[in-house]
Write a protein that binds this DNA or RNA. Structure first.
Lengths: 337, 337
DNA sequence: GTGAAAGCGCTAACAA
DNA sequence: TTGTTAGCGCTTTCAC
């Protein structure tokens, strides 16, 4: 398994010149004679010479590498984010190292360690749900490694971040139902200890208030899984005065609602309209198709990476931490109109 | 932005000893006195010293890094594979660099270049659909960098690989329909130029033959998108003698079929049973839930990585290329029983 | 126009 | 028990 990697030395030896000359010839240094350049470049090509990025990293104390810490790659949203990160990083000549925390604190700490050890030039982090202690994050800052948070933010930590305006998106979604004439809109809410749970609920309530509609506690049910949504929908339908619209905290619960409604003979959207919050690609394949908020994962990844590159590429750029808030817009489909 | 990374030299300087002593103390070398070890380790801890993986890579000509080239991370199957890769690699102390080809040949070539430049110790590749020329792959072999193919295989290239037994899985799926008493089973087929298209169709046909059922050309329709599935289903229903079962090449088309059937008042599975081939996580949230083949993406990633590690960790292991075929098993749900 | 030498951080053979 | 030195591949200053 002896490695066959060609080095500058190999080229130098073959051509009977020095390594430094080869190095210069390869970067088209003006001092080098055309003849030498030609010989070097031809041989390099012939031997499939590829500069050793590891040596370059060590030499320049810059690895041209970005580290990413993400909770779970298998979520459609997060994999879209990664796609956005990869594309932008790639265009800027950076390599991306992705680590999954699997929503675990200990794993996240290990990830940080690995990335720092690899001397990544910057990191993009979506903090795990389990993380409530931040020494490992401070370690990144201590080393002056630029960092951008995305999607999940820790208020105590001052660093660039890009998030979605969940509250506004929920407001829009609810308003869309109101504009469609709905007066009793239920909400399947997320957990109260998660910011998305809170933000989406606040947006919902605000839209009701702004339209002079009452916020009815019985119509707000904590339900963030498919099964819970089915139960919650049945509960709503069993009420004396059922809702005429449902705004669900995510698509999965919206789909649970739709199926239950249909099973009980309710017409969507005629009798009850349904709006979800996109976390998959289910919305296009339900029947009717599901009106939902598009979270723009790809854009989030690309924006976050650009924010990071801005600091990486201009070492004297030292503006204070920026907050970039993405608009998440409503995609209106069949379930609500 | 001056980097604050602590080095062995820093520790040596502070303690007034040599760098090599520090190095040895950190790895608990028996020659070093307890006192020195203690001092070094305490200071290292205090300063948050993290070994420079870049320097180690250069020194050892081993980067402890695995490169992955994958078509598109946003597919659930591929992101599951990555999860499997990450977990196994992580446990073995390896870092993973993921590159997306986006199903493009030029991008894949660039990915290989980047990974070779980073001197990854081994690579895991699922070749892009667009790739029909293999110089970049040969370049990997030329450098004696161990490589494992997963999911997509190039017969001409001899290297370890792990694939799914598509044919067998399709056979099982079709047989399951036959066992349920279905006699006219339609097939939504994938493109004829893709191995999954061919394999799945062959498995379907073989199951029919083994059960002495005729292979009816009109019941085999090329349909690998949601929209095509809807059209195809309508076409089937308009036949004089419609099918009593549908085996679809993927879940998306199976769902298209189900919706069309339901729209036209057909009961699933009573009148027509439907089976899909899993490429998402739709199967649990349809109504009825969808019987489908589980592709075991996570397992594929973990097996592929283990095959790679076997070569990386035992340099004298040089068995010929192995082929690992995973069983993809049928998950029976409501759409077929 | 080209070469020699030093150094990025770390390790290991060799000295002391 | 510890230090010195050389070297992994590359770049860059300084010499010639």
């Amino acid at each position: 398994m002896s490695s066959n990697q060609i080095t500058i030395k190999d080229i130098a030896r073959i051509l009977g010149i020095s390594a430094s000359t080869v190095s210069r010839a390869l970067k088209n240094h003006p001092d080098i004679s055309e003849a030498t350049k030609k010989a070097v470049n031809e041989l390099a090509k012939k031997l499939n010479y590829e500069p050793n990025a590891v040596a370059l990293s060590l030499k320049h104390s810059r690895s041209n590498t970005i580290g990413v810490i993400i909770p779970e790659i298998v979520h459609y949203f997060f994999s879209s984010v990664i796609s956005g990160i990869e594309d932008v990083a790639y265009d800027a000549g950076f390599t991306v190292i992705i680590c999954q925390s699997n929503e675990r604190y200990d794993r996240e700490v290990a990830n940080v360690k690995a990335l720092l050890s690899h001397r990544v030039d910057g990191v993009l982090v979506a903090i795990s749900k389990e993380t409530h202690q931040y020494d490992h994050i401070f370690a990144i800052q201590d080393r002056n490694v630029p960092m951008v948070f995305f999607d999940r933010v820790i208020p105590e930590i001052e660093t660039d971040h890009v998030i979605i305006d969940d509250q506004k998106a929920s407001y829009e979604a609810t308003k869309h139902l109101i504009d469609g004439g709905r007066k009793r809109i239920a909400h399947f809410a997320g957990p109260k200890n998660l910011s998305i749970g809170i933000e989406r609920r606040v947006g919902y309530e605000q839209a009701l208030k702004d339209a002079n509609l009452p916020v009815i506690p019985e119509l707000i049910i904590e339900a963030d899984s498919f099964e819970k949504a089915i139960k919650a929908t049945n509960k709503l339908l069993d009420m004396e005065n059922p809702p005429d619209g449902i705004f669900a905290v995510n698509d999965l619960t919206a789909i649970g609602a739709m199926q239950t409604l249909q099973k009980r003979g309710i017409k969507i959207p005629k009798q009850i309209a349904v709006v979800g919050f996109s976390d998959g690609r289910f919305s296009g394949i339900t029947d009717p198709t599901l009106t939902s908020v598009d979270q723009h994962g790809y854009e989030m990844g690309s924006v976050a990476t650009k924010m990071l590159l801005r600091r990486l590429l201009n070492p004297n750029y030292d503006a204070p931490a920026q907050s970039h808030v993405l608009d998440a817009n409503l995609i209106v489909r069949g379930s609500s109109i």
